[in-house]
């Protein structure tokens, strides 16, 4: 539900970081907040976290400057990943324009990734949106744990588990180190802007 203010030529869109609990969604936003200082349009707001678990959502406003004569503003959100916060996830997902799905590479989280992706599909469907049509990027986070000999799922298996039908751009990442975070966001922004161009018939 991007907002296009034709008079002032401002486009505002909403990107939601989705995925299983403890997968690194907040860490993604924290890194973006730290690294993309020029694009920052305000401080990151973490609304009510319990310890380091997100209960409500995180919010980071960004400004991408002028694109085709329009001022493009992006709002990044995270959802709480824990299963019990289903209604908050639905609420945060309302009016979403694009999704970054942050999957956890740890082998023990394989099922949690798949369940969370299905949850995303259902919640989008409730908004009459299709997971196959919305701009979507997958991120396979915590790849760095392989260096500590932790059992992680190989990339080709993650692709098979999560992306065999979706066939969307995917990126290995370590949100803690920042590896792959920028590439994920850029790919998502590219898809989003392309999608909005078509939706809003927005040309320069």
């Amino acid at each position: 539900m991007a907002i296009f203010n034709a008079k002032n030529r401002i486009i505002e869109c909403k990107i939601v970081y989705y995925g299983p609990g403890r997968g690194g969604k907040t860490t993604n936003l924290e890194y973006i907040h730290k690294a993309f200082t020029k694009q920052r349009a305000g401080e990151m707001v973490s609304i009510d976290t319990q310890g380091d678990r997100t209960l409500f959502f995180d919010f980071l406003p960004m400004g991408l400057g002028k694109i085709r004569g329009c001022d493009v503003k992006v709002q990044l959100y995270t959802v709480p990943g824990q299963v019990k916060y289903a209604s908050t996830r639905k609420m945060v997902l309302k009016g979403v324009d694009a999704v970054v799905f942050v999957a956890d590479s740890l082998e023990i989280r394989r099922k949690a990734n798949m369940l969370s992706l299905r949850d995303l599909q259902q919640n989008l469907a409730e908004q009459k949106k299709s997971i196959f049509k919305i701009p979507l990027v997958l991120q396979y986070n915590k790849r760095d744990l392989a260096e500590q000999d932790m059992p992680i799922v190989p990339l080709n298996v993650m692709e098979r588990d999560l992306n065999s039908k979706l066939k969307v751009p995917s990126f290995p990442a370590s949100a803690l180190r920042g590896t792959g975070v920028g590439a994920t966001l850029k790919a998502c922004l590219k898809l989003t802007l392309h999608h909005l161009q078509k939706e809003l018939k927005w040309a320069g």
């Binding site: 678990r53 740890l106 023990i108 500590q148 000999d149 932790m150």
Partner: peptide, 18 residues
Amino acid sequence: KSLIKEAELYQSQGLLAQ
């Protein structure tokens, strides 16, 4: 040792049940 290392890492990740 390897199992304990694994368990400690899960704990540090907040994956308490695991």
